[in-house]
Amino acid sequence: MRVYGMPALLSVLSVAGLVLALTGDGLVDAVAVVLVGFPLALIVRSFLRGRSPSATAPARPDPESKD
């Protein structure tokens, strides 16, 4: 389902990062931290972007309407 695309991607990336960090040191750890931290960056981006009307957020939904 389309709704789950982004959350699933973020979860797979961060869990991959967590496991990757178990297996290595140095450069591997650095890559792992970026993967794990990626969802946090998206949260921050959503907060920053929410301050102005955005192209990706859909028009204000009306819970009563049926499409």
Binding site: M6, L10, S11, S14, V36, P39, I43
Partner: peptide, 13 residues
């Protein structure tokens, strides 16, 4: 919902 969706993987682990 945003935070829950973004942190689901980490939280589940």
């Amino acid at each position: 919902k945003l935070v829950g969706a973004a942190t689901f993987g980490w939280n589940l682990v």
